[in-house]
């Protein structure tokens, strides 16, 4: 049995910047490492990413492993799994954390399987069981209707963490850390995955994940025209528009604004849910909002159980009148 020690974070870099989820993971990892009195390391993989190391140190890492190679420019499962396998076997961390992102959800289970250990995806809380030094991993299951706490005896214990579930530390640029360059050692012939094209949906206005006000439309909106109305209201409130899954499936709203278990996770200051029933799979993506406001014609809708303010009525009458009144009050 290898002598596994320390917490390792798989850090994601987008456009030369440490991602929010990476900052959150480093914050969570720092706490776990302190609880274990062990080291926090970060693994940075990509092409031209070495310069991120100081930032990862500022956010809490003690040691940075950098695997920088042109072959690693795009995320490709086969290449990245090989790199994670190599570094983990060299470093032997006790815990390996990734973000529940496009990359993390693909990489974590495959890497864990190769390393003959287990993984838990999309978790929301991490604690150390002081008796066994095992990681206790809390994850929503049954579409958010329940929570499970898991542990595993195999090492490293692998988990992916949901966006916004953890808090980043205030970066401290005076922190010191060590940078270790690891050779990718990849055989180009062994990489069978090819990324042919990347299509990014264009967004106008405020980014959904960053908006402090989110106006979300549900199935009850009934069509694309309704979403135009919500768009207008969002503009007045300086917010962004989100959707439940049915409007995205129906093509009334782009897939990229779906909020929920399998969509985006948002936690704005104000979340206005319009004609949304409040299914657990949807609430999984917005229950971290500070103030939920529900507009629904069904007084029994589950959304009212999680809202701070509610209006029972027809959104078609409520939204225009609400927008008009807000404008009137804003101009005062």
């Amino acid at each position: 049995m290898a002598d596994n020690k320390g917490v390792m974070i798989f850090v994601e870099v987008i456009d030369g910047k440490l991602t929010n989820i990476a900052q959150e993971l480093l914050g969570a990892g720092r706490k776990l490492a302190n609880d274990l009195s062990e080291e926090l390391s970060a693994l940075i993989v990509g092409s031209g990413v070495a310069n991120i190391a100081p930032e990862a140190i500022a956010y809490g890492a003690d040691k940075i492993y950098v695997v920088d190679a042109p072959l690693l420019k795009d995320y490709r499962t086969d290449a990245y799994v090989a790199v994670v396998e190599k570094v983990v076997k060299q470093v032997n961390p006790r815990i390996l954390l990734l973000g529940q992102t496009t990359i993390g959800r693909d990489l974590a289970p495959r890497a864990a399987c190769r390393l003959i250990t287990g993984a838990i995806l999309d978790c929301i809380a991490l604690d150390i069981d002081t008796a066994t030094k095992q990681l206790l991993i809390t994850k929503p299951v049954y579409g958010g209707n329940a929570r499970a706490v898991y542990s595993m005896e195999t090492l490293p214990q692998v988990a992916t963490v949901r966006a916004k579930a953890m808090t980043a530390l205030v970066p401290d640029s005076s922190r010191k850390g060590q940078v270790v360059i690891v050779d990718a050692g990849l055989d180009p012939a062994a990489i069978k995955t090819n990324v042919l094209q990347k299509v990014v949906a264009e967004t106008t206005g405020i980014k959904l994940e960053d908006a402090s006000v989110v106006v979300t439309g549900g199935r009850g909106i009934g069509g694309p025209e309704g979403f135009k109305q919500l768009e207008e209201l969002a503009k007045v409130l300086k917010g962004a528009v989100g959707a439940t899954r049915p409007p995205c499936d129906a093509g009334w709203a782009p897939d990229t604004i779906q909020i929920g278990l399998t969509g985006k996770i948002v936690s704005p200051y104000v979340y206005i849910a319009v004609a949304v029933s409040g299914a657990s799979q949807h609430m999984a993506g917005c229950s971290g909002s500070k103030n939920i406001i529900a507009i629904n014609r069904d007084a029994e809708a589950a959304i009212f159980k999680e809202a701070r303010f509610g209006v029972v009525g027809d959104w078609k009458k409520i939204i225009p009148a609400f927008e008009a009144k807000v404008k009137e009050l804003q101009s005062k």
Binding site: N194, V195, L196, K198, V199, V200, A201, T256
Partner: peptide
């Protein structure tokens, strides 16, 4: 392949 902000065309 669906990504956070769109999709990627991947060939294997």
């Amino acid at each position: 392949k669906v990504t956070t902000d769109g999709y990627e065309v991947v060939e294997v």
